[in-house]
Write a protein that binds this DNA or RNA. Structure first.
Ligand code: NAD
Ligand code: NAD
Lengths: 214, 214
DNA sequence: AGCGCGCTGTGAACACGGTCACAACGTGAA
DNA sequence: TTCACGTTGTGACCGTGTTCACAGCGCGCT
């Protein structure tokens, strides 16, 4: 297991969601879980869960299952840097405001540290307790907050420019809501969330579903 | 090719995005495209594009490429029902408002036809030109608008109940923003958009990216 | 008219993630 | 103490989606 080339994307994704179930178990005072319980709370089979945990090197015990608190901490060590993750948001429009409302109140290991917009009227204002900064403060604030992730909620035309600006400031991870493919250096991770495409896909599949199976 | 079991999900997804590039070509007066041009505008190789178009049965001509207008119409016939797709939105909170702002002004083949909320103060009000209805009007309005897709922007605790309610009204496609797995009949298509997980994934990958390759 | 280039269409090979199936083992009951 | 059960850990297998590689062909150039 070399240090740069890490776990598969799909596994990381499931780790994120396993955490939710594990937290709920902890809240309920349930000290141990079986693979089939974790599987039921996700889109997964018991074998898949065991495989994921094997991949990250976490062992359970036969007839007892996995230790909830131990696994939660183990996953946290993989996913979370010691000081949590800071993100910056670009574009405080309709979508940006919703994101701010959600990720600033959150005490999770991940939060939005600062927001930016190009519109002069918005700059300086505060939105859900977060001050909106001008774009020329980007480099300084990324450095100060040690932000490692950038969120793009700007119009499609501006997205690539803003992405490259973020990369120039040292950001290596992006979440892009704009409906365009960004051309980025290969060491930058970008997750596209394309709500329009998701809706179109679902509409398509809904139209072509077989009448009723289960 | 039987009528129920249709194209793979990934292909449908790419068809949605090919359309964007094709529309841009049309706007620019470009009558034909090559597979490598479509590929460059997407996360795809030329072979992948050709394979997709082969899958849907659209032919180009060597040395001339694909006819932009023809392909656009061909994809439209696959993705869009004749009258467009109507969706209903459940939960007009921070996220719901952003979605309304985007998908009501849109003249696209897909639009939000009605919004619903449980909070008495919100019901009856209008948001971005869309009236907010009470939940007990759901069945009637789904029937009247012929909505085929439901969008869940409600708190996690309410998501599964609301999903089942939509299904009971005849909706067969869902887009779910709540961070829970929905247990649904197998003939219902559900696309989960889990923004928190996307952020966590990106943060993870950004931390473990190799220093610099390209 | 003839030639060569560059594209399309596609069978075959490949890679990856997911699933199966089973040996190993700890636990609790008798 | 012994046994039966249920769960984990994992090698082998399988299916799907992606890429390779090349034959076939039309266009434009000479
Ligand atoms: N709202 C939705 O539900 C929705 C759905 C699908 C896709 N999207 C996409 O998400 C993005 C944002 O959508 P929105 O609805 O919030 O749009 P919006 O127009 O409401 O907001 C865009 C914001 O970005 C700011 N902006 C513009 N250029 C900028 C720049 N260069 N740097 C920083 N800020 C800049 C604007 O001032 C504005 O505040 C768009 O690309 C849109 O296509 C949104
Ligand atoms: N806002 C974000 O950026 C964001 C990010 C990640 C996930 N989410 C998820 O999206 C969902 C919505 O987020 P939000 O920020 O808009 O929350 P919000 O609290 O602002 O809005 C929720 C809305 O749903 C309404 N509601 C509650 N129960 C309902 C019911 N049974 N039927 C209809 N409406 C009901 C409430 O009245 C409220 O208007 C949540 O599940 C949240 O976890 C949001």
């Amino acid at each position: 297991m070399n240090s740069t080339n890490h776990y598969p994307d799909r596994t990381v994704e499931r780790l994120c969601t396993y955490r939710r179930t594990l937290r709920r178990c902890l809240d309920e005072g349930k000290p141990r879980v079986f693979s089939h319980e974790l599987a039921a709370a996700h889109q997964a089979t018991p074998a898949q869960v065991r495989r994921d945990l094997m991949t990250i090197g976490f062992s359970g015990s036969p007839a007892r299952g996995y230790d909830v608190a131990g696994l939660l901490e183990y996953i946290g060590d993989i996913l979370d840097p010691p000081d949590g993750t800071a993100a910056v948001l670009l574009g405080v429009g309709h979508l940006g405001r919703a994101l701010l409302a959600h990720f600033t109140r959150d005490r999770s290991p991940l939060h939005v540290a600062a927001a930016f917009d190009i519109t002069p009227e918005k700059v300086g204002a505060s939105c859900h307790g977060c001050t909106i900064h001008p774009l020329d403060a980007l480099e300084r604030i990324v450095a100060e907050t040690h932000a490692t992730v950038g969120i793009l909620a700007v119009p499609a035309e501006a997205a690539e420019d803003m992405a490259l600006k973020l990369v120039a400031c040292g950001v290596r991870g992006l979440v892009n809501f704009a409906p365009v493919l960004l051309h980025l250096p290969s060491d930058v991770t970008c997750e596209d969330i394309d709500i329009t495409v998701s809706l179109e896909k679902v509409a398509y599949h809904a139209r072509h579903a077989e009448p009723r199976v289960a």
